[in-house]
Design a protein around this nucleic acid. Sequence first.
DNA 1: TACGATAATATGCATGCACATATTAACGTG
DNA 2: CACGTTAATATGTGCATGCATATTATCGTA
Lengths: 233, 233
Amino acid sequence: MTLTDTNSWTGIREVLLRRIHDRVWQPGEQIPHEADLAQEFGCARTTVNRALRDLAESGLVIRKRRAGTRVALNPPQRATLTIPIIREEVEALGRTYRHSLLERDLRPLPPMLHGAFQVSLGEDVLFLKTLHFADDRPYAFEERYINLKAAPGAQDMSFEDVSANEWLVHNAPYSHGDLSFFAVNADKTLSRKLDTASGTALFAMERITWSGEVPITHVRLIFAPGYRMRTEI
Amino acid sequence: MTLTDTNSWTGIREVLLRRIHDRVWQPGEQIPHEADLAQEFGCARTTVNRALRDLAESGLVIRKRRAGTRVALNPPQRATLTIPIIREEVEALGRTYRHSLLERDLRPLPPMLHGAFQVSLGEDVLFLKTLHFADDRPYAFEERYINLKAAPGAQDMSFEDVSANEWLVHNAPYSHGDLSFFAVNADKTLSRKLDTASGTALFAMERITWSGEVPITHVRLIFAPGYRMRTEI
DNA sequence: TACGATAATATGCATGCACATATTAACGTG
DNA sequence: CACGTTAATATGTGCATGCATATTATCGTA
């Protein structure tokens, strides 16, 4: 039997967590004040605060000033997923990474993206089409638009050695972004690139990143069949 | 021009963040000690600590005792995604939710799941097949196995009114789980249930949850065409 | 009674201090 | 000089305290 150290904030968090799990405090119910808990555990209010703040961060309790702390009614199921650089993801699987640049040109932004990706009208963006490999087998197909206003250095890069993915991470840090996941059927091009039958269901990810108000890049990644994105909760 | 209050930990965090973004501190580079920063900002070390801890949590800096704090080389791209109860997700879209239970029986655990879902050999599990609707249009198809040892009350539930999804969230809280996302082609059954052409690429999610060492449930959710899982980073 | 001012209260946050702990650098001994 | 011991150091965490702030309850007045 492991006994929890109720003198550390993590220990206190465990105790509180168990009470929530064991329904000592019902969902929606208000739990004792920080001051009371501090007295119960024989510690400073600061320590209880730390534990409660952590529980609030993970969504298990809802805290409001004056109103107190209560157990969340529907503990939202949150998962943190890590989106690695493709090279690192492949290498973590023990496979050898390489990529090949299929296309690279300047072109006006396709109308489809005008809403989400606000670059000045008539401004060209850098378009890249890349195929990522793991052990010489296609791993993912990438289509990317880069706003040269946000990443001027990109124009001088060939992106044949360093992938745009990696270069941007290191050279055009973003402040926020939108991410979405969905499924697509392989069309003729995709099936040829990813070496699969036409029509196969493929896992896809789309990402737009900004630095403040300025859009940096729009990527669409389509993974080879069998890809799974995993995480723990 | 918004001036940041360098006396609050969030203010200090913003300043540090900007220095990292602006490459004042290069990736991999070590940044000044808490004590030095505290002096620079004219605040307590605790306050700087709070700011740095927050940056470390989001993966932007790496902290080690004695070794100091340094800017992360490849800021891992983390996204927190919220997996809501389907009813809530549908209602948040302003649509009406309902579900219909297609199958419900006790059966031995399929061999496919023996590895991941450890119930005693010969033990039956509760199997449910559910279709979720939004405004009477199919939204997601669900196949679920419930370990009755972990959620005994489930045997007495019909799950016709309350979905298993929702009931379990409220009655069998889990401590951790595995989550994965992938794409599947609609087979004959799926295409009929989800009212789509056979072969359509569908977004799918699989989830296993445990309470300690005891598996609670295994769900596989397959969403109707067009579904996108979104999040911000 | 209606409604706005005011007081009470729970959490949020900053401070200064002390000690714990992990890690690295320096040192000393064989 | 190699290698294990020891000291120095940066972060991690706890405590007591005081004030800030958001929210709710209460009270007084028209």
